[in-house]
Each structure stands twice: as C-alpha cells, then as structure tokens.
Design a binder for these strands. Structure first.
Lengths: 119, 119
DNA sequence: AGATGAACATAGTGTTCATAG
DNA sequence: CTATGAACACTATGTTCATCT
C-alpha cells in the first residue's frame, strides 16, 4: 500500500466529476481546477491534467471528439478536444471512484492520526 | 507547493514525538510505527525511518549515542543507536512541527474537498 | 532472529519545449 | 494568449544488498 494517494488519481477524480456535469476540454478544466485549489495554494500542473485525461481514455472511461471552439468558424479556428463518457464509461467511472474513495478515507484517517498523535 | 505531504515529513513528525516521550532507537520505533499504522494497511519502510532519523541529525534536531542494548554485556552484545534532542533540538523540533501542521491541515482540507465535491 | 546502513532501481512528478491558431 | 502534447530531468521513494551481533 502506498503512503498517500497519488496526484494523478486525485485529479482523475475531479475530471470525472467535471465530465459528469458537462462535456469539457482539458484547458478549460485545468483553469477551473486552478481556481478551485487556489485557496490551498495548490496549482495543478498542466501536464498532469492531460496525462490524467489520456489515461482515462486508455482505460476506456472517456472518449475524445475534436471540435472548433467558437460557433463561428470564420472568427474562431481554435480546435479543442472534448471529453465525454464511453458507453460503459459511467460504470467504469463509478467503480474507479469507489476505489479512490476507499483510499481517500484511508489518507484522511492517517493525516488525522498525525494531528491527534503529535499535537 | 507540492500536492501532498511527503512520507519523509510525515514520519519525521512521529519520530520527533517518540523521542519526546523517551529516547529511542530506529528499529524499535520502526516496529512501533508498523503496529500503529497496521489498521491503515500502511507499512512504513525500514529505509525511510533511518533516512528520516539521519536527516533529523543533519538538521541538528537529534544527536546519536551508541549503546549496548541489554543490561548484561556478557549476554547481549547488540549495539543500538539511541536518539535524543540536542540543546536547541526541542526548539527546532517545535518549529518543524508547526510547519508540518500547516501542511497537514492543508492536505486534510484538500482530501475533504475531494470527498465533498466528488461523492 | 534483531539492528543499522547504503546502493541501486523506478515511478511519479515538475519543468521545459514543440506545435498550432 | 488559448490549447494540446510530449520530452526531459529530477527527487522521493521502494527494493535489494551488506554488515554485524
């Protein structure tokens, strides 16, 4: 058993939830996460978000569709990669979340123990 | 800012507290920590305990004294390395603990956020 | 078995670079 | 500046080995 939860797993969790709420793309979700974690002084690195998304595709949870960002192609040519759940992606995601939940609880327990025992 | 607290820092915290309670030696504290963390399925690796102790010595928090384990040298020749606080070790330890506390709280906050936001 | 230490190998990262509109 | 991706570099860690009683 590893000591703490990995950053990758932690980020994947949030990405899954974001895709649950609405189809999203990497850069967008990255910026949102930066905002959310700002109070903790934690800046999720760009590379980790993309690595996490790639892994979720590899694992068959998400699939990619490319698409132009703006509604008017003559104005906005920016191509983005949208992520959404595969057919059985929702199930797989739920399973994954269940596993991560166990680990989260374990980690919280260990950190609380540190506070209890040493302060 | 790193994502999570490092295992090294986490272990150093417990080692400091153990030395506060009584002078101890590596193997002994390792075994105690193994017991304490067993419920979490976490087995602190031997190498990390020694590395942590060496670092605390480097940082001037602890100092070492060698000593025979048993009371009767004709029976027990096992040499152990006892650790105790240096003159200003207590202060340094307190400062270190204060810093780690901040990080512990931050980590607990981030893990709780994960539970709140994704379940 | 108890006890200490270091060497070696690797995974998970952080940082930088490449590309494109 | 938005957006995606990969290459590279590093550091904390896991595993193994060495040594002694």
């Amino acid at each position: 058993m590893a000591f703490m939860i990995a950053q990758r797993a932690y980020i994947k969790l949030f990405l899954i939830t974001k895709v649950e709420q609405r189809r999203g793309y990497g850069y967008q979700m990255l910026e949102e996460l930066k905002q959310e974690f700002a109070p903790f002084g934690y800046v999720p690195p760009q590379s980790e978000i993309y690595r996490a998304l790639h892994e979720l595709v590899q694992e068959g949870v998400l699939f990619r569709t490319k698409q132009l960002k703006g509604s008017d192609p003559s104005v906005d040519f920016q191509e983005i990669v949208l992520y959404q759940f595969t057919d059985d992606g929702t199930e797989k995601a739920e399973l994954y979340k269940k596993q991560v939940k166990t680990d989260l609880d374990r980690c919280i327990g260990m950190l609380n123990k540190a506070v209890r025992d040493n302060y």
